[in-house]
Design a protein around this nucleic acid. Sequence first.
DNA 1: ACTTGGCACTCGGGAACACAGAGTGCCAAG
DNA 2: CTTGGCACTCTGTGTTCCCGAGTGCCAAGT
Lengths: 337, 337
Amino acid sequence: MLDERKLAVLRAIVEDYVSTNEPVGSKALADRHNLKVSPATIRNDMRDLEEQGYIHQPHTSAGRVPTDKGYRLFVDRLSQVKPFTAAERRAIETFLAGAVDLDEIVMRTVRLLAQLTRQVAVVQYPSLTKSAVRHVELVPLAERRVMLVLITNTGRVEQRVVDLPDAVPDDSIAHLRAVLNATLDGCALASVPEVVAELPTRLPTADRPAVATILSVLLETLVERHEEKIVFAGTANLAAADFSLGLRDVLEALEEQVVLMRLLGETDDLSELTVRIGSENPYSGLRGTSIVAAGYGSGDKELARLGVLGPTRMDYPVTMGAVRAVARYVGQILAGS
Amino acid sequence: MLDERKLAVLRAIVEDYVSTNEPVGSKALADRHNLKVSPATIRNDMRDLEEQGYIHQPHTSAGRVPTDKGYRLFVDRLSQVKPFTAAERRAIETFLAGAVDLDEIVMRTVRLLAQLTRQVAVVQYPSLTKSAVRHVELVPLAERRVMLVLITNTGRVEQRVVDLPDAVPDDSIAHLRAVLNATLDGCALASVPEVVAELPTRLPTADRPAVATILSVLLETLVERHEEKIVFAGTANLAAADFSLGLRDVLEALEEQVVLMRLLGETDDLSELTVRIGSENPYSGLRGTSIVAAGYGSGDKELARLGVLGPTRMDYPVTMGAVRAVARYVGQILAGS
DNA sequence: ACTTGGCACTCGGGAACACAGAGTGCCAAG
DNA sequence: CTTGGCACTCTGTGTTCCCGAGTGCCAAGT
């Protein structure tokens, strides 16, 4: 059904189109790639490819352009991820190694990725549900107000101000703090709710209301909001890529964290690259864009995801190489800090 | 030199051009604004205005467009800030009041501002140098590693991981923590360096190296990096405004925090609005854009700044009203939390 | 001294048009 | 199945042309 040569033709079309951004015709193909057949033969192949939906011609008598389906086949079977050179790796490593805290790691990562790929980079903070408690802190701010600070083993620091129902003496707070840390230290965040549930019974009854308030805020912090913390960079690259096609829609999507989360997707396998091409992705405003994403983590566990967003006609092998390389190094840095 | 009527003509030109985005001619002016004079007279006035550099015609036989100087005069003398209605204020208030911590306040503010003005909003976090210490926390992570957490009275939480020169027992850490808090609580961040300088002498000599390391990181945190923490939102509005003029440059500028900082500028007077028009602002890529900024703070002190960035041809009265209103309410919210 | 109507002039931008070039599909021969 | 030949079909580009908005200037009016 799909000849070996037809595949070669498809590959050539994708490569040419990506680099020139112009529909590619049979003659140009015969010239630039040594396929050893005549343009007429290529035309026949293209005809078949078009019938099966891999390519498409904008108008009669224009060259062909790959469809989403065509890119998909290219990514799955016709290309291989382009690995980074040693020099490039070192550059990444040294650039990321300079970061002193999680915020800076993430910030540098997203910029690096944007610069390497010349596209929009998206990085998710290490997911809370996949982290564990490293420390819980209670800081009295006023008589009836406490700041709750949660530090995870992935370096995230979450804070919330808690308004207490009534005044609580400082030493009660200190005691609760000690108990919390003793109980929760090292505890996976996912299992915090259960552990916390039976906590009030082990504390003086006088403090119950305050404790209940604090704990409820703690739980809220875990599940409700900060789960999805995402940053992006490199939007200027969008403007450079001449596709003004729905630039507005793309920018809007980027500012919606929920959409972003769904774009990055999920995989179980840590080392796997996810590629979503054009209409495959779950948001209509992004019909002309593709997403290349990967999970990253320290050791064997996926902590979160990062990726790149660009026009469907992007250089997949290079982009995939960059995303994979950066994901690996972030994992290493994270493990070491 | 500048007739009352000429000023009226200039005002009319600015208003018309802002709303139509097309060069405005003498006839249109005479029709739409009841200036009670004939087009010919207006032409004479426009001639003068052009000679003095307030307006400009793209080509012979096209209408006139305001120059930066023209907008400047308009902002300074020909317009008044449009106040918000009670309903709008309530909307702002309730929207901002729902925030639970500083991150969320800032996030909501920047989105609100972007939505109100339909432009790009920029918000700076409360400046560290203008805050005071509320609490310092030291969390042992490993034998020779400590996390330093600094909480300010403006709600900012800064964290840094510190690698110690040698192992320090937990109770030494606890002691240092206690001393630090006792010494620094309520201390203005600007004066922390002096206060800290004499601290090591008051601690056991055995801990000196570790203490020195921790303190140097603390000082570094204060001055070096996080001083300028800035977020922005609403870039999609840029794409909507048809000015594709240097959209790329604008996006690039937005991702440079240093540039952003300088854009927001500084004023001593809290309630003052700063307007930078086109070429007035300090970055060449933003020649076609204006910035409207204001300081915000709790009480009488300016904590940081926020503002809006849009095409030079923006509706200044409305934008200025929005920026001023949002700045005020953020100040209130901040004071109350 | 300023305002106003008249008038000739300029110029940008859109419509109409022609045309070259790239690319195709098909066919018949190798 | 491949290939060269050929007629055909488009798009994009360049050219020309013309309309209309807008101007500057001038002479007359107040």
